[in-house]
């Protein structure tokens, strides 16, 4: 697995027989999942799938191309609003509106990529942060988009079939998620993907060997925005209602956390990061009710802290998990995975 002997081995999507086997098993499991799970579990997995899409897009930008973004909630919002607006005002069907929304978002990504050509580090961070904040501000102002009142999602219809249940939405979202994951893996293995990596490692060196910086940096922003926009468009149907409030700075930060906690520059890492962070966000809300921990926390709240502030423990735990993962494994969850794999391969030595 580690030695690449020729070019074709490098661009191959799957490296070995077992990988093909496990891929088939995974796809089978994903297909069978809605048959065995209940509606709430499917809903959770839908959320995770959307976050996976966004995390993949962001990882392409942050992990592969080395550009930071604190404004992906803006693209998320653009995707969500464009999808709904195209369906409600232009009466386009969903399967057209969603990719179109993705391209609209990509166009904005391209625009944001332009100042990014000259900016790096904190300067880029603040520019993207400003972008995210401005987008929600403008959306709140436009009455076409419901202003601050928000926008109700129309019923989801696909080729004449009404999709109303969580399992139905799963059937729409999961294939998109799988296709986009496959697409990204493909992209990173091509000339374009290698150009991104070259830009990340040293943009001047990349330029010297003939990588067109303007093209590849803006392209990275555009592709990343496309993924995020698609994620946003799907999110609008999961929520059923969107308002500018839904896309705050915290959302951007969570996306970034998914990517870094999962593992920069790794597709498997993005998936793991999205799964972990989404799951934590949902589960930690109930931390006070856990069997053993709950009473201890309640007692602690009574003694030292305040009882009404108890739910804030979720932030403490959340922050701690993020910090610990980065401290002990700079490659994030993906690093853990690699290390576990190596440990078992060389076991018992």
């Amino acid at each position: 697995m580690d030695m690449k002997r020729d070019y074709y081995e490098d661009i191959r999507l799957l490296d070995s027989g077992p990988q093909v086997f496990w891929l088939v098993v995974l796809l089978g499991a994903l297909a069978a999942f809605p048959l065995v799970a209940d509606s709430y579990q499917i809903y959770t997995v839908n959320l995770i799938a959307i976050n996976v899409i966004v995390a993949l897009g962001l990882n392409l930008l942050v992990g592969y191309t080395g550009q930071i973004s604190l404004g992906h909630a803006g693209f998320f919002a653009i995707g969500a609003y464009s999808t709904l607006a195209l369906m409600l005002n232009a009466h386009l069907p969903f399967f057209l509106a969603l990719p179109l929304a993705g391209f609209i978002s990509a166009a904005f990504g391209f625009l944001l990529g332009l100042p990014a050509l000259r900016l790096e580090g904190p300067y880029l961070a603040i520019a993207t942060l400003g972008f995210g904040l401005t987008i929600t501000q403008i959306l709140g102002r436009l009455d076409v988009f419901g202003g601050h009142m928000g926008l109700q999602a129309p019923p989801l219809e696909l080729f004449g079939l009404k999709v109303a249940s969580d399992a139905g939405r799963y059937a729409v979202i999961m294939p998109i998620c799988v296709i986009l994951t496959w697409g990204l893996r493909n992209l990173t293995k091509t000339r374009v993907g290698r150009a991104f990596v070259a830009v990340r490692d040293s943009d001047i060196a990349a330029e010297c060997i003939g990588v067109n910086l303007t093209y590849y940096k803006t392209l990275a922003f555009a592709v990343s925005a496309f993924y995020t926009g698609i994620g946003g468009g799907l999110m609008a149907f999961i929520l059923g209602f969107i308002s500018p409030h839904t896309f705050n700075v915290m959302v951007s930060i969570m996306f970034l956390a998914m990517v870094v906690v999962g593992g920069l520059g790794s597709i498997l890492g993005s998936v793991m990061g999205a799964v972990l962070i989404t799951w934590l966000q949902l589960e930690l809300a109930r931390i006070g009710e856990l069997p053993l921990v709950g009473p201890v926390l309640t007692e602690l709240s009574n003694q030292v802290f305040t009882l009404s502030g108890l739910p804030n423990v979720q932030y403490v735990v959340f922050g701690l998990i993020m910090v610990l993962i980065i401290i002990f494994e700079p490659l994030g969850l993906y690093g853990f995975w690699i290390r576990t794999k190596i440990y078992w391969r060389t076991w018992p030595f």
């Binding site: 423990v313 932030y315 403490v316 910090v323």
Partner: peptide, 17 residues
């Protein structure tokens, strides 16, 4: 990201207290 994590921890502790 570590500072972001710290931010959450401090925020959580302050609101808890």
């Amino acid at each position: 990201i570590i500072t972001l994590g710290l931010e959450m921890m401090l925020y959580g502790l302050a609101s808890w207290r």
